[in-house]
Design a protein around this nucleic acid. Structure first.
Length: 364
DNA sequence: GCGATCAGCGCG
DNA sequence: GATCGTGCTGATCGC
C-alpha cells in the first residue's frame, strides 16, 4: 500500500509524517488545501475526506492511516506489555487525573480499545478470561448522560420521553423538526442525535454545522428549535453558568467540584471554553459518580456471596467482569440490578448486559 | 541521546 | 474561534 501511494505521488516520502504528506498533497499534487495547523496545512481525516474526489491517492492514505494506527497502538503496542509469566495484560487505573471525576487508564490504556470499525473491533478477540471456559460479562449504561441531563434540568418533555421508554433521538427529531414521532426518518434521527450530543457539550451553531455538514444558519435553527421544545434545558444551562460565574465552580450530583477560573477570563475563547466545561462537567461527572457507586456495591455483592467472578475493567459507562460459566447468569442479573439501582434519578436508569467467550463476541 | 511538543486518532 | 473528557504513536523540535 505504501509503495502504491509513493507511485501515485511520484516520490518516496515518510507517509507517517503529516508535514511531508502535506508537502506532497498541497504542493507537489496541487490539491486544495483547507484547514491549517500551527505549522501548516492539516492532513487530518476530515480534511482528507473532503479531497476524496480530487485524487485517488486520498483513499489509500486514509486506509493506510487506519491500519497504521491499529498495528502501532494495538498490535505492536500491546504485545510487549503482556506479562509473560501470567500471559496477562494489566492496565493501571487512575482515580485522580481527570477534571470531571472519571477514571483514566494507562500503560496500556484499556479504555480505548477499538469498537467503532469492524477491522479494529477484531482486536477485542485478544481479550478473554483468565481461566479456560470462563465467560466475559459486560454491562453498560444506556444514554446515561442524556438521562442525567433530564434529571438535572427537570425538563418535562425529556423526562416524559424516558418514562415512556421512547427513543430519545427520535423524540428530539419529532419535536425539533415538527414531524410525527412515528414518521421520523433515519436521517432526521441522525441530525437530532448530533443535536442531543451537542447540547451536552455546549455546542455552537458553527460546531453543529461542521458536524452535520450543513450551513451555520440552518444549524442555529435546529438549536433554537431544540430550546423552544425543551425550555427547561435552556433555563438549566443558563442557571448553571450564572452560578458557576458567581461561585467559581460547578458540582456533580454527589458534590464533586470543578473550579473553572476560565469563566472570568477576558479572553473570549478561554471564557467560552469555561462555559462549555460548566455545562458538561455536571453531566459527565455525575455519570462518573454513578458508576463508581455501582462498582463499590457490585464488589460488596461479589464478596458477600463469595463469588469467583470479578470485575476486570471500567470504561466510563461500562463494566467488564470475568466469571465461571456457572456464575454467568447471576452476574448478568447482579450487574444490571446494581448498576440500575445505584442511585435514583427522575428518569429510569437502563443497563444492557452482554456475555461471551471474549470481548469481541459479547451478545445479549 | 532524551524529554517535550505537535499532529493525528483510538475510546466514552 | 468554534462540542466535553481522556492516552498513545511517530515525527519533530530543542537542549
Amino acid at each position: 500500500m505504501q509503495k502504491r501511494i509513493h507511485e501515485l505521488a511520484g516520490i518516496e516520502f515518510n507517509l507517517n509524517s503529516p508535514k511531508q504528506l502535506a508537502e506532497v498533497l498541497f504542493e507537489r499534487l496541487q490539491l486544495t488545501g483547507g484547514k491549517k495547523t500551527k505549522s501548516g496545512y492539516s492532513t487530518d481525516a476530515e480534511t482528507l475526506e473532503n479531497l476524496m474526489n480530487e485524487h485517488e491517492i486520498i483513499g489509500l492514505i486514509l486506509e493506510y492511516r487506519t491500519l497504521a494506527k491499529l498495528k502501532g497502538t494495538y498490535l505492536d503496542g500491546l504485545i510487549p506489555l503482556i506479562d509473560p509469566k501470567k500471559d496477562r495484560l494489566h492496565s493501571t487505573f487512575h482515580q485522580a487525573v481527570t477534571a470531571t471525576g472519571r477514571l483514566s487508564s494507562s500503560d496500556p490504556n484499556l479504555q480505548n480499545i477499538p469498537t467503532r470499525n469492524e477491522e479494529g473491533r477484531l482486536i477485542r478477540k485478544a481479550f478473554y478470561p483468565t481461566v479456560s471456559d470462563w465467560r466475559l460479562v459486560s454491562a453498560d449504561y444506556s444514554q446515561i448522560e442524556l438521562r442525567i441531563l433530564a434529571h438535572l434540568s427537570q425538563d418535562a418533555h425529556f423526562i416524559d420521553a424516558y418514562k415512556q421508554k421512547q427513543d430519545i433521538h427520535r423524540r428530539t427529531a419529532s419535536e425539533v423538526f415538527d414531524v410525527p414521532f412515528e414518521e421520523v426518518s433515519s436521517s432526521l434521527r441522525d441530525k437530532a442525535k448530533a443535536v442531543n450530543f451537542g447540547i451536552v457539550y455546549g455546542i455552537s451553531d458553527y460546531g453543529l454545522a461542521t458536524q452535520l455538514r450543513i450551513g451555520r444558519k440552518e444549524a442555529q435553527g435546529y438549536i433554537d428549535r431544540f430550546f423552544e421544545e425543551f425550555p427547561a434545558i435552556r433555563e438549566y444551562q443558563t442557571k448553571i453558568i450564572a452560578e458557576a460565574k458567581e461561585s467559581g465552580f460547578v458540582t456533580t450530583l454527589f458534590q464533586r467540584r470543578r473550579y473553572l477560573p476560565e469563566l472570568s477570563s477576558k479572553n473570549y475563547n478561554l471564557r467560552s471554553f469555561g462555559e462549555r466545561a460548566a455545562l458538561n462537567t455536571p453531566i459527565q461527572g455525575s455519570a462518573a459518580d454513578l458508576i463508581k457507586i455501582a462498582m463499590i456495591q457490585l464488589q460488596q455483592e461479589i464478596e458477600k456471596r463469595n463469588l469467583k467472578g470479578r470485575i476486570l475493567l471500567q470504561v466510563h459507562d461500562e463494566l467488564v467482569c470475568e466469571t465461571p460459566r456457572e456464575e454467568e447468569e447471576l452476574f448478568k442479573v447482579l450487574m444490571k440490578e446494581t448498576m440500575e439501582q445505584a442511585i435514583q434519578l427522575s428518569v429510569p436508569i437502563v443497563v444492557e448486559v452482554y456475555s461471551g467467550d471474549n470481548w469481541y463476541e459479547l451478545q445479549k
